[in-house]
Nucleic acid binder design. Structure first.
Lengths: 249, 249
DNA sequence: GAATAAAAACAATCATTCCTGTTTGTAAAG
DNA sequence: CTTTACAAACAGGAATGATTGTTTTTATTC
């Protein structure tokens, strides 16, 4: 492949490079002051640890979204996080471990969202379509979906493990949200099978459009399209339910 | 990363073996007509060349679909094609060149399909929805789309070049098909804006479902879902056009 | 028309460049 | 003063492209 993009300059110029000597002297003199070594540490170990771990994970998330799973390089993660590769390997003893942490992280975030959304679904009243569309938009344009997709699109043995991990998580988080929306639709009077189909179709529309934006930049208004979609679905549900009641009555 | 997946066996066992004998005889007779060398070449240079190039490209297509753009390894391409890496580098002087050839190839295939489909669109009669769905299925589950997606999902400097190449091609091939479908919808009486929306939505549904199958294996029947979608659209178009005529009359 | 030179299609080996994980070293926190 | 957080240098493997060698086809010359 081409070697055109060697971004070597300022490789670690822009960040870190803390004042080592100064810090040392300051601490030393303070300690010399008397029997009390109680200088105030700026951050506790746990805080430092968690902070850089979060930075690393978030950097990894960005890079996986940008370059795909197999395009991820540890050196880039470290650079973007503003630490050395040594630090990365200290917190995650292998690249694989980092990826597992990444998945766990986006999944946790997604899980919290899920709970919120499931709650929304229950209070969506008689017309949940709007809520479903909003939910789908948030999900399919978010980190979790793109990382899931990136994992799905590489088939080496490593990503197979990750795939299983992700799949388990999907069933516990995303699954419950969709079940909640299904409930919402049904309790607004839509028959189960139709509700399931409408839900699947709506999710596919949004998923499909999200992927489209990956390939080419939004030349048409997604919001308008979604409005049309919402109208179509509402109309269909109305007539379908009308027919349903006629058949019963 | 792990080294668990070495697929060495049958490295050159199972594939290729084009009709050599037929070719040989044809060539022999051709040469008999004029000056006759003492041995008959099995295949002409151009034939050999084209054959292995095709094998290499097709192998690369499969591997990009399986492992993504950045998961592609030249050694695997050569193995799957049944030739040495030396041969690969002889025909394509770099991995990048191979990838360009891959894109050209899938695009050519797609272009031929496009012409066929555009023709279908023009003869789709009064109800083009069925045809649109079929077309979308063929396209979004085919090689071209997945390779386009694989390219879109990696953002290094190399794939940016490929992206441009692909984008140009899209506009000449896929674009015309969609325009033809739009025409078909309009000539069956659907207003332009609505026709465009319906087309976009249908494409998104299929695209979205195709991507879904990447992530998890089809637990529900896509065909049933498409049937529902077709019904919804038909119904909507009927009422929309009825309203349209009422407003006009 | 046979001998032979030339070129193209491959194969095999080598060198270089990444990328990962290990090791060793240093500063900060407990 | 022990442990933890980080940094820097190193070692080994993998992947690419270059080089060299071998076979097959094509062109040339007698």
């Amino acid at each position: 492949m081409s070697n055109a993009d060697k971004t070597k300059p300022e490789a670690r110029g822009g960040q870190a490079s803390l004042p080592r000597t100064a810090t040392r002297q300051r601490l030393q003199s303070r300690r010399n002051s008397s029997s009390e070594p109680k200088y105030a540490p700026k951050r506790t170990q746990a805080e430092r640890s968690e902070a850089t771990q979060t930075q690393l994970i978030e950097a990894a998330v960005k890079l996986v979204r940008a370059n795909g799973l197999r395009g991820l390089r540890t050196v880039e993660v470290a650079e973007l996080a503003g630490v050395s590769r040594g630090a990365l390997l200290h917190h995650f003893k292998s690249k694989h471990d980092l990826l597992v942490a990444v998945i766990r992280h986006v999944n946790e975030v997604s899980l919290v969202e899920s709970a919120r959304r499931a709650h929304l679904a229950q209070n969506s009243g008689n017309d949940p379509i709007e809520g479903i569309i909003k939910d789908a938009q948030d999900f399919y344009f978010g980190d979790y979906f793109f990382i899931e997709l990136a994992i799905a699109m590489s088939a080496d043995s490593d990503s197979r493990i990750l795939k299983r991990e992700t799949y388990r998580n999907s069933r516990t988080s995303r699954f419950s949200v969709e079940a909640a929306w299904l409930e919402a639709l049904m309790s607004s009077g839509v028959p189960k099978q139709l509700a399931s189909d409408i839900l699947s179709l709506t999710l596919s529309v949004v998923r499909g459009y999200s992927v489209r934006t990956l390939i080419e930049k939004d030349p048409e208004q997604f919001s308008r399209l979604l409005k049309v979609w919402r109208d179509i679905v509402r109309q269909h549900l109305q007539t379908a339910m009308a027919n349903d009641q006629k058949n019963r009555g």
